[in-house]
């Protein structure tokens, strides 16, 4: 398991390749990447991501450990950035390695569902009209009930 919380960018290709190369007995590698989306108006200047140092790492580790216990997985990688990001920047990635794809896909979805509403990150969208904290969606909370 590898958990990274950082302000620096990461290279998706490098990280995916590094993750995959360590797992020769795994038939399936799934990666998901979250990207800063522009506002509907197309005027997003910056997305600021705040987090709770210490708790963030603990929460992500707990979610990753739970995924490793629930599915037949070889490994889990989570990278999540904080600080100011621009539209198009990569915010985060998860990767799962499993002998078979069903476990890898399901575990990646589980990681994303829990990461969204149980890891202490908060997003603020800054445009020329002002700054707004992104509100949590009911559907994100509802997504947890299927697990």
């Amino acid at each position: 398991m590898r958990i990274l919380v950082q302000s620096e960018p990461f290279d998706l290709g490098d990280e995916a390749k590094k993750f995959a190369s360590g797992h020769n007995n795994m038939g399936a590698i799934v990666t998901f990447t979250g990207v800063v989306r522009d506002l509907a108006r197309g005027d997003l200047d910056c997305m600021e991501i705040e987090h709770y140092p210490g708790m963030t790492e603990r929460a992500l580790e707990k979610i990753a450990r739970e995924a490793l216990a629930r599915w037949s997985l070889g490994d889990v990688l989570v990278i999540h950035r904080h600080g100011p990001l621009a539209p198009g920047d990569m915010i985060m990635m998860v990767a799962t390695a499993a002998p078979h794809r069903k476990d890898a896909f399901e575990a990646a979805e589980y990681l994303m569902d829990y990461l969204k509403s149980r890891a202490p990150f908060w997003k603020k969208e800054i445009s020329r009209d002002g700054a707004d904290w992104v509100a949590a969606k009911d559907e994100d909370e509802d997504a947890l009930t299927r697990w």
């Binding site: 979250g34 708790m55 985060m92 969204k116 509403s117 890891a119 202490p120 908060w122 509100a135």
Partner: peptide, 10 residues
């Protein structure tokens, strides 16, 4: 003890 709004990661 920490107080915050519902989280919006990912």
């Amino acid at each position: 003890v920490a107080f915050f709004p519902p989280m919006t990661g990912g």
